[in-house]
Design a protein around this nucleic acid. Structure first.
Length: 506
RNA sequence: GCGAGCGUAGCUCAGCGGUAGAGCACCCGCCUUUUAAGCGGUAGGUCCUGAGUUCGAAUCUCAGCGCUCGCACCA
């Protein structure tokens, strides 16, 4: 301990005008000093924990009320409650709660004095025997304990917990301490991500990493974040998608099946379903097409749901959703025809399409293309009602500049988006591998950009060059991992499945 | 970006022109088989910030900051 530490932790009487929070903290710093005065480091190095709390709850679930064992265990966690001057302490670890019982019969004078220096929020380790109290609570009859970390700040009140939404996200550690549901959701996220990764690897995909800092933000229609590399004196973009790099790896033949599951960044609005940085799984499989991708999507979701949730029937809000294969498949134009009676396949010009949309009450701009109009009619009239998983297939060509022309219809491409609970969760194509066609598509995008669409794709010459060396037929798919996890954890807000969601800097 | 709502003690919330309230937590005392909270007592506040209206503002008005929801953009 340095002299400065001494000065900081030496007790000074609380100033009369100090706020309550300051006084609580100062009182705990005083206790910290008392621990040190007794030669005890309140921030020690290790503890040899033998069991998790839930592990003991499970192991001794049949131990009768009032029964004592001679089984010695070492538990550790955070003090969440103390009753009768510390005789009963609720200890919380990531798995659950366990009561520790500090009776004066089992502790020395020094140890009893130490109990008085404990506060709610402190981290302790305890050694003792397992028993179930006459009131039926599994407890550890403590014969020794160790302070593992002194807490200086008071925890939120335990009955109502921490409900303030802003504090929950800004100080996620507090949320995790206080709210088991938050812990469950983020733990489940981890399990789901692990299962997704293992599913991909079991299918023969290799995991790769491609640039997050890109000179051209390609692969999607979105506004990028701009940053700057000092030594190169060059602006760079945080990627909006890994797509073009992953396909370069397919061209190069690194593997015939690759995937990347990592962050994308899009400089767009924040909402309960959008975070500026979000996790996407993108995968590419040579010699496959979008039909193969549909099968893979279904297999993946069914497999991870069964593995982590044990079921393919999930509840989301009011809805019960079945993830069991096979999922419905409908063409976009077919879905629109079914819902509205308008067959856009028979509408030749953009002008007629815009008129048809307006007749349906869908607002479209005067320069909107045929494909864009079809998509908007679909989104306005149908999207929200698609609760059960469904692949919407065969998108208009002009809104899909990286997808291969449909084998039966040149106005369309071989692309699908899968909707679950009305949300786009999957987006996949038979990848465009014709370099001359790709160049033309980029050029159309450049025209759109010049016409004011700042989310149109940028020309990526090197990507076209890669295609000119030859890319095999390839199926590719992107999966919004956060949304999938929202569905699988019944989370209404994307921030509930992201440990540290984007917030305005205070 | 636009619209609506919210911001009071460490936490959860009342109060809505007339001296700032409660429960829990804290602190003190009692208590050693309690469990949202053992029992009793004390103390605790730039009422988000700044301007204005008023004799007087937590309360009304305006602006700013932050948050939430909806819309727009999008996954």
């Amino acid at each position: 301990m340095t002299k400065d530490d001494q000065d900081m932790t030496t007790a000074t009487p609380p100033e009369t005008d100090a706020s309550q929070g300051d006084r609580i903290r100062q009182g705990r710093i005083d206790k910290l000093t008392q621990w040190r005065d007794q030669g005890i480091n309140p921030y020690p190095y290790t503890f040899d924990k033998s069991h998790g709390n839930q592990e003991l709850q499970d192991k001794y679930k049949d131990l009768p009320t009032g029964e004592e064992t001679s089984d010695v265990v070492h538990v550790a966690g955070r003090i969440m409650a103390m009753r009768n001057s510390g005789m009963f302490i609720d200890l919380q670890d990531p798995t659950g709660k366990l009561q520790v019982f500090c009776h004066k019969e089992n502790l020395s004078e020094d140890q009893l004095a130490g109990v008085k220096l404990l506060d709610i929020g402190d981290l302790i380790g305890a050694t003792g025997t397992v028993r179930r109290t006459p009131r039926g609570e599994l407890s550890i009859k403590v014969t020794d304990f160790k302070l593992l970390g002194k807490s200086l700040l008071p925890l939120p009140e335990k009955f109502h917990g921490l409900t303030d939404v802003e504090t929950r996200y800004r100080q996620r550690y507090l949320d995790l301490i206080m709210n088991p549901e938050s812990r469950d959701t983020l733990l489940k996220r981890s399990l789901l991500v692990t299962e997704i990764r293992q599913f991909m690897i079991a299918k023969g995909f290799i995991e790769v990493e491609t640039p997050m800092l890109q000179g051209i933000a390609g692969g999607a229609a979105a506004k990028p974040f701009i940053t700057h590399h000092n030594t190169l004196d060059q602006d760079m973009f945080l990627r909006i998608a890994p797509e073009l790099y992953l396909k370069r790896l397919i061209v190069g033949g690194l593997a015939e099946k690759v995937f990347e599951m990592n962050r994308n960044f899009r400089n767009e609005g924040i909402s309960p379903r959008h975070n500026p940085e979000f996790t996407m799984l993108e995968l590419y499989q040579a010699y496959a097409d979008y039909n193969d991708m549909m099968d893979l999507a279904e297999e993946l979701v069914e497999a991870v749901a069964l593995k982590v949730l044990g079921t393919t029937e999930i509840t989301f809000g009011e809805h019960t959703i079945s993830l069991k294969r096979p999922w419905a498949r409908k063409t976009m134009i077919g879905a629109v025809l079914e819902e509205t009676g308008v067959d856009f396949a028979k509408i030749e010009t953009a002008e007629d399409a815009r008129k048809a949309a307006k007749d349906l009450g869908v607002q479209v701009k005067d320069n909107e293309s045929w494909g864009s109009v079809v998509e908007q009619v679909f989104e306005v009239k149908i999207e929200e009602s698609l609760i059960q998983p469904i692949h919407i297939t065969d998108y208009p060509r002009d809104i899909s500049p990286l997808a291969k022309e449909h084998r039966d219809n040149p106005r369309l491409v071989e692309r699908f988006e899968t909707r679950i609970n009305g949300w786009e969760v999957f987006n996949a194509f038979s990848e465009l591998s014709d370099p001359l066609d790709q160049r033309g598509r980029f050029e159309s995008q450049l025209e759109a950009r010049e016409a004011g669409d700042d989310e149109a794709h940028q020309m990526d010459e090197d990507y076209v060059t890669a295609l000119e060396y030859g890319m095999p037929p390839t199926g590719g798919m992107g999966i919004g991992i956060d949304r999938l996890i929202m569905l699988l954890t019944n989370s209404a807000n994307i921030r509930d499945v992201i440990a540290f969601p984007t917030l305005k800097v205070k």
